[in-house]
Simulated scan of single mutants.
Amino acid sequence: MKIAFLTPEYPHPQVVSSAGIGTSIKNLVEALVKKNMKVTVFVYHQERNAILEEKGLTIHLIAKKPRRFFTWYFYRKQLQNYINAVVKTENISLLEAADWTGITAFMRLNIPLVIRFHGTDAYFCKLEHRKQKFKNFVLEKIALKKASAYISPTIFTKEETAKLFSLKPDKIKVVPNGIDLQNFKNETPTIFEAKTLLYVGTLIRKKGVLELAKIFNKIIEKEPLARLILIGSDTADVKTNTASTYKLMQDIFSDKAKEHTNYLGKIPYTEIVTHIKNAHVCIFPSFAETFGMVTVESMALQKPVINTNMGWASGIIDDGINGYLVHPTETKLYVESIIHLFNDENLCVKLGAAARRKAEHNFNIDTIANENINFYKNVISKS
């Protein structure tokens, strides 16, 4: 059995860019390769065509040919023809693709297609209470309806996506995203920079960063030595047509909060682990996610984490046991939870240890890879 992935991103020096989707796919790919499986990754929307060979892994970079009209359609047909040709020469058994904007719509593939719920545009529009472009919904629905089966990282994402697109729940397998726990070890969980808050993720409205600014304003009033570290790419804000979401955050920050905030921008992935270890508390007040890789990584590094109390997060954190769940708009409760952790080191250590156990039990990529393999085999056997 040889598996292929179709994705717009993948962490590799020769790939244009990558974020959470790419990281979760790479974690799985590396685990599959360790189990002696051959894997192919098709990365679209690249600047050039190239084939990269690595141990047990072949990466195809696929550039987009410019078209005068209907580029969205012809590029899908271009991808279809390319994939089908490689499927034949490499004897690939199954293709997994992401759901975002329905990249597989109008493709006629010669092997079973599994779509993993990284989050459709429709899903995020519903969570953010914003209107979706009709074309995006149509493309996503066509793509999803043509798939042989689906994988969802949480029960919440499964249920919401099934309702949005009228999918049969029994065709959706819930398998969480996983991490290589060997890469996320913290030998000194009691050593950290006191009263340091850490946020890792894109600076975008849907991730609750504007609420984070309000929260930190209150924190700095109660804890004058507190610090906030922000890591991630800045983005434009669609709602206000502002070029920088960080600029919107700065407009919210008090003068004291600005002095104690350090925005590092996008940094190498290896450096993020160090920042998580150094943090006192990790905070992710997002309004819209499907999973949240950095939450699991922080838990594995034995950090007390405060996440949103929305559906997907409850599949990761057990409130009060291995972290806290608080709605992003509940500023007062967020502040109280953070201050409580700042003033109780034993509680931080206790929550961190419980978080590590949860990560080991639920998000070990070795175990999760086996779940994926068994699911792939089942889909292939029924096709």
Rank of each mutant, 00 (worst) to 15 (best):
residue 220 I to M: 06
residue 285 P to E: 04
residue 206 K to R: 15
residue 200 V to P: 07
residue 59 I to H: 04
residue 294 V to G: 01
residue 281 V to T: 13
residue 255 D to W: 00
residue 234 D to H: 12
residue 99 D to S: 13
residue 122 A to F: 09
residue 220 I to S: 12
residue 95 L to S: 09
residue 70 F to V: 02
residue 238 V to C: 05
residue 173 K to C: 14
residue 208 G to W: 02
residue 118 H to T: 04
residue 44 Y to P: 14
residue 101 T to C: 11
residue 190 T to L: 10
residue 93 S to T: 13
residue 129 H to Q: 13
residue 158 K to H: 10
residue 298 S to V: 08
residue 230 L to K: 05
residue 123 Y to H: 14
residue 243 A to L: 12
residue 303 K to S: 02
residue 253 F to G: 15
residue 125 C to W: 15
residue 295 T to S: 05
residue 284 F to T: 12
residue 378 N to Q: 15
residue 58 T to M: 12
residue 41 V to I: 12
residue 238 V to F: 13
residue 70 F to M: 11
residue 349 V to E: 08
residue 214 K to R: 13
residue 225 L to D: 15
residue 167 L to D: 04
residue 174 V to L: 11
residue 364 N to H: 14
residue 152 S to A: 15
residue 35 K to Y: 04
residue 65 K to S: 13
residue 362 N to K: 15
residue 38 K to H: 12
residue 83 I to R: 02
residue 275 H to G: 01
residue 356 R to T: 02
residue 249 M to V: 05
residue 340 H to C: 12
residue 206 K to Y: 08
residue 128 E to Y: 02
residue 210 L to M: 07
residue 381 S to P: 00
residue 105 A to R: 09
residue 194 A to F: 02
residue 78 Q to D: 10
residue 114 V to I: 14
residue 352 G to R: 03
residue 71 T to E: 09
residue 327 H to R: 11
residue 63 A to W: 04
residue 76 R to P: 13
residue 261 T to K: 07
residue 313 A to F: 00
residue 63 A to V: 01
residue 307 N to L: 00
residue 353 A to K: 08
residue 53 E to N: 15
residue 19 A to N: 05
residue 306 I to A: 00
residue 266 K to F: 14
residue 151 I to S: 04
residue 211 E to G: 03
residue 187 E to V: 06
residue 199 Y to S: 03
residue 298 S to G: 07
residue 221 E to M: 13
residue 364 N to P: 11
residue 238 V to N: 03
residue 111 I to C: 06
residue 110 N to L: 09
